[in-house]
C-alpha cells in the first residue's frame, strides 16, 4: 500500500505531465488546425457554387481570384470596416435583425456572371448544422447549396451533407411571382403545401428534425439579405 503522501504526489505529477503534453501538442498544431478550418470554409463556399476541386492550392487560388467578400446589413447597406473572417454567424443570429453584420460572398463565374453566397447556421437534432446557399444574379434562383453538420445521425439527418440532398436545391426559387419571400422549403414529398414545386425540396425520411432545422435555417438566414438584394435589383 502506497502512502497518502506518495498518492498525492503521483496524482499531481501525472496531472502536470499530461497537461504539459497536451498544451504543447495543442499549441504546436494550432496553426495547422486553423489553416484547415479556414480552408474548409473556403471549400464549403466554393461547393455551393458547384465547384468540385479538392486540391488545396486550386481551392486557395480559385477562392482568391473569384470570390469577393463583403458585409451588408438588413437595411441593404454595405458595411465597411468589418471583415467577414471576424464574423461568427452563430453570434450574429443572437442579435436583433437590425444589428446584424451579414457576411456575403460574391462569386464571379463564367462571363462575369455573379453568384451571391449566403452563410447559413442552425440547429439539427444533436447539434449545430450549417451551410452556404448560392443565389444567381436574378436574386431568385438557387444556383447551388452546401450543408454540413456536427453530429447528425449517419444515414438519416447526416444525409444533408450528401450530394443527392444538396443537388435538389439547384434551380429552385426563393421568391414567388409577387416578389414575396417563400424560401426553399424542406418538406416531405407527400406534404400538401400552398406553394409550387419550385419552392420545395424533399425532406429526409427518418431525419425529420434535421430537415425541419434546415428549413428553418434557410428562412432565418436568407431573409435579412433580401433588402440588399432588392437594392441591387433596382440599380
Amino acid at each position: 500500500m502506497h502512502s497518502n503522501r506518495y498518492t498525492f504526489l503521483f496524482a499531481a505529477a501525472i496531472s502536470v505531465i499530461t497537461a504539459i503534453l497536451l498544451a504543447f501538442t495543442s499549441e504546436s498544431l494550432k496553426p495547422l488546425q486553423e489553416a484547415n478550418v479556414a480552408l474548409d470554409k473556403k471549400t464549403s463556399i466554393l461547393r455551393s457554387v458547384r465547384f468540385e476541386g479538392t486540391d488545396r492550392t486550386v481551392i486557395e487560388n480559385t477562392y482568391a481570384s473569384q470570390v469577393q467578400e463583403m458585409v451588408v446589413n438588413s437595411k441593404g447597406e454595405e458595411v465597411s470596416g468589418v471583415k467577414t473572417e471576424d464574423i461568427v454567424v452563430k453570434n450574429e443570429l443572437a442579435k436583433p435583425v437590425g444589428d446584424r453584420n451579414l457576411p456575403l460572398y460574391v462569386y464571379s463565374g463564367e462571363a462575369d456572371k455573379k453568384y451571391y453566397v449566403i452563410p447559413l447556421y442552425g440547429t439539427g437534432l444533436w447539434g449545430p448544422i450549417w451551410g452556404y446557399i448560392a443565389i444567381e444574379n436574378d436574386f431568385n434562383t438557387v444556383y447551388g447549396s452546401f450543408f454540413d453538420h456536427k453530429s447528425e445521425t449517419p444515414g438519416l439527418g447526416a444525409e444533408i451533407a450528401e450530394k443527392p440532398f444538396q443537388q435538389q436545391f439547384q434551380g429552385k426559387k426563393i421568391m414567388d411571382d409577387d416578389n414575396q419571400f417563400i424560401s426553399v422549403n424542406v418538406v416531405k414529398a407527400a406534404a400538401k403545401v400552398s406553394f409550387g414545386d419550385e419552392h420545395r425540396v424533399d425532406a429526409i425520411s427518418g431525419g425529420t428534425i434535421t430537415s425541419t432545422g434546415t428549413d428553418k435555417m434557410l428562412k432565418v438566414c436568407m431573409e435579412p439579405y433580401l433588402a440588399y438584394f432588392n437594392k441591387l435589383k433596382t440599380k
Binding site: 496531472s15 499530461t18 501538442t25 488546425q33
Partner: peptide, 23 residues
C-alpha cells in the same frame, strides 16, 4: 483515475493530430 487520464490523454492527442493532418 490514472488509467482514465492516460486514456483521455491519448484520445485527445489522436483528435488533435487528426485535426491538424487529416481534417
Amino acid at each position: 483515475i490514472v488509467q482514465l487520464i492516460i486514456v483521455a490523454l491519448l484520445v485527445t492527442l489522436v483528435d488533435q493530430v487528426l485535426k491538424a493532418y487529416m481534417f
